[in-house]
Amino acid sequence: MLRELRSRVEQLSYRVGITPTMGWLLFINLAVFIAGRLIGGFSTMLGLPPRWLFNLLAVPAWLPQLILEPWTLVTYMFYHVDFTHIFWNLMWFWAFARLFLMRRTSRQLRNLYILGGLAGGLLYILAYNLFPYFAGVLPAARALGASAAVMAITIAAAYDDPDREVYLYGLLAVRVKWIALAAVAIDVMSVTGSNAGGSIAHIGGAIIGFLYIHMLRRGTDLGAWLNHLLDWGKARPQRQGQRPRFRRYRGNQQHASSSGDSTRQQGTGGQYRRYTPPQDGPGASADRATSQAEKEAEEREIQRIIEKLKQGGYPALTSEEKEKLFRK
């Protein structure tokens, strides 16, 4: 069932011209919103407390409550209550995630979304506990929504390609750096307004968006730890220094073994004899050379597609080129 769902989400993503990662982030936000509305309606009819789901998913600012609900620091960035809230968040995400992907990968988009949400939530919690201005509302204050994560992607896309022009409402050409600066300025001026928590979270997302691209340009990916965490179950190359897996042969059966420095092979008389794995030879060297050549050819192809994307835009790419670029 999960495999079928994944296949459908990816097919729909390709069909509307976005990457599967974008499709999954949109799908999760929409699915949580719809499920929340349905559960909220049934809860009201059953006489359950109206805010139990809100308290389960929204992140609290009060530290004693946060200690009891640490998962909310993740769930809050996918949770929306109002239609207008999720609509504008996802519209903003749709626009700037596509700009971000013109220069960066889908993994980096996923990682930045999570990092932006975490940074926004942490700055919100810190500010509400640090400044006396929020003392009166601190015990009941909670934050929700993808705004901080989307702001991180917005600032990252603008910092990465500041002079790229976009058309507001299809009419007015504006460079993305001015849109990003205006968004940050509005949030800075709104930190004591009616949505103070949201504005503070936006600033946290903006900071991590700037730092993410700044560090990438210096060779450090702040989201590398998320690759190890979220891609844990996928095939990975053997790490340097890791003990190789040897093989134990018994009759015609072959079993993997990672213990010991050698393995043994059963002889015809029922006795075991030591077996030494084959060493690298000319054939292995040739295979490595072929693999390296294939990687270099793939990288050249990706660079060609990116250049074509820059010159002619997304519609200029063929279906095969889009698939290669998104898979990368």
Rank of each mutant, 00 (worst) to 15 (best):
D163R: 12
D161G: 09
R327L: 02
N195F: 12
G241I: 00
A235H: 07
P139S: 05
P278W: 12
Y79L: 07
G241E: 03
A289Y: 06
S194Q: 10
P282C: 05
I208R: 07
Q311N: 14
T220N: 10
R103F: 03
R264W: 12
L90Y: 04
L118Q: 08
K295P: 06
G204Q: 11
L101G: 07
I153M: 07
A201P: 03
T220C: 11
A143V: 05
I186A: 15
M77D: 08
E321V: 07
K308Q: 13
P282T: 05
Y275R: 13
R250N: 09
G121K: 03
T105Q: 13
Q11I: 09
G117M: 00
I203S: 06
R3G: 15
P70Q: 06
W88A: 09
A149K: 04
W52I: 04
G198I: 02
G121Q: 04
A61S: 13
I28D: 03
Y133C: 01
L172R: 15
I18R: 05
T105K: 05
G47I: 03
L222E: 10
L112N: 01
R239P: 09
M215V: 05
L229A: 06
S7V: 00
G198K: 06
I179Q: 04
H255M: 12
V176G: 00
V74W: 10
V74C: 05
N252A: 13
L53Y: 04
Y314E: 15
A135R: 08
S190D: 11
P244V: 10
L68H: 11
R103E: 11
Q240G: 14
G17I: 06
A152Y: 08
F100G: 02
F93M: 09
L112V: 01
K234M: 12
W88I: 02
S258K: 06
A97M: 05
N111P: 04
D221Y: 15
T220E: 15
P315R: 14
G281N: 13
A156C: 01
S259Y: 07
Y272M: 12
P50K: 04
F100H: 06
V174P: 15
D221N: 15
M45L: 14
H228Y: 13
Y76W: 12
I207T: 05
F210H: 09
A201C: 00
Q266K: 12
G117A: 00
A31I: 12
A140Q: 07
Q292G: 02
G145I: 01
I306M: 15
A256E: 10
S291N: 12
Y124E: 01
E320L: 13
L211K: 02
Y79H: 12
E299Y: 06
L122W: 14
G267Q: 14
H228L: 14
L181I: 08
I207L: 08
A201E: 05
L99N: 11
R98P: 00
L30W: 08
A182W: 02
G121P: 03
L211V: 00
R98F: 02
R218A: 06
Y133F: 11
S43Q: 10
F33N: 00
Y272I: 10
T268K: 15
R264N: 08
Y249L: 07
A31R: 00
W232N: 06
A206E: 01
L211M: 09
G205L: 10
A235K: 06
P139E: 01
S13N: 02
